[in-house]
């Protein structure tokens, strides 16, 4: 029986290509910015910018491996920035305030899952509608004013850095990625997501429960987004509207770059994480070079297309040889 060694497999994987891309990116931006790209200030910027995206990426990867999408994640995050700020301002102790936010987020995920599994609606449509509902509710409930957060513990959690460089929130995000990455690649639960995502009918006939899985994944995705929202509020020391705009798209783009497909059943957490780094690094690079925002949007889209084309080409070469 032919066995490919781990190293061989790694070199053939998308993750390897991405790592090369990441290195290239750092080199190019460093040259273009005359070294500013690797300065402490910029590294702090990059590290800051990936925290929220990381949480959204984790949820998105799990859903996408199952073959679902959740467009409402950013809206959930925005909602909880306002909610946590309001609750704290009302004098609620922080553990309880966070808990309420997570419960509220979980409810959103639950409703998404009900509409998708019980009524058979398309995830894309359901969550798109849900995103709008939440946006509206956010204005209706919390108004449009900025709400300051004064709780010292939470402000500290949101703003302080280990050694002045690595934000505490980033540590939380990394732990989250590692834990979920482990679950996805090594455990029975993770395997079930791949199997159900690969072919729900076959998996069901083999004793899996696709319905239950949909509930778990949507609730999980919303809770992660809710948590990200809270952490963002702590960092900004306030709840502000439109704080996470389309963060889940960055997450999804990262995941796709990393080899997670829309069809479900493929890809992994590590690849998605690297993919997300590539995108975040790219965006920060463009900001640093003072590229106008519309060029940044253009650039992120172009990067994804480029990576997809590159991967296609590479795998084409692979099958030819």
């Amino acid at each position: 029986m032919l066995k490919t060694s781990r190293a061989q497999k790694f070199i053939k994987s998308k993750v390897f290509i991405l790592l090369i891309l990441l290195v290239l990116e750092v080199v190019v931006f460093t040259i273009l910015s005359q070294g500013l790209y690797v300065s402490i200030i910029n590294i702090r910027n990059i590290l800051n910018s990936i925290v929220i995206t990381a949480f959204l990426t984790v949820g998105a990867v799990l859903l996408m491996v199952r073959g679902y999408v959740d467009i409402s994640a950013s809206a959930v995050g925005c909602f909880t920035t306002m909610m946590v700020a309001t609750l704290l301002a009302a004098g609620m102790p922080w553990p309880i305030a966070i808990l309420f936010c997570l419960i509220a987020s979980g409810v959103v995920g639950f409703v998404n899952a009900v509409l998708i599994t019980e009524c058979g609606f398309q995830p894309f449509i359901v969550t798109m509608a849900m995103a709008q509902v939440l946006k509206g509710l956010q204005y209706i409930i919390f108004g449009t004013n900025r709400i300051d957060i004064k709780d010292p513990t939470m402000v500290a959690l949101g703003t302080q850095r280990i050694g002045g460089l690595v934000p505490y929130t980033l540590v939380l995000a990394l732990i989250c990625i590692i834990v979920y990455g482990f679950i996805l690649s090594k455990t029975y639960f993770g395997k079930s997501i791949y199997m159900i995502g690969g072919n729900p009918q076959a998996a069901k006939l083999a004793g899996f429960n696709p319905k239950k899985m949909a509930y778990i994944l949507f609730i999980n995705d919303s809770i992660l987004a809710g948590l990200a929202g809270c952490l963002l509020a702590f960092r900004m020391k306030a709840g502000a509207l439109d704080s996470i705009t389309n963060g889940q798209f960055t997450g999804m783009t990262g995941a796709i770059l990393g080899g997670v497909s829309f069809g479900g059943g493929t890809g992994g957490m590590f690849g998605a994480f690297i993919g997300m780094l590539v995108i975040s690094g790219f965006k920060t690079g463009l900001t640093l070079l003072a590229v106008p925002p519309w060029w940044m949007t253009f650039g992120s889209g172009a990067l994804l297309l480029f990576a997809l084309a590159f991967d296609r080409f590479a795998s084409f070469r692979r099958t030819k040889s």
């Binding site: 029975y188 690969g198 998996a203 069809g263």
Partner: peptide, 23 residues
Amino acid sequence: EQGLIRFRSVQDNVCLPVFQKMK
């Protein structure tokens, strides 16, 4: 339609119903 998880390995496809017993 009902048997294969087409884009997964032979191994995943054979082990499908017994993953639970491989913890």
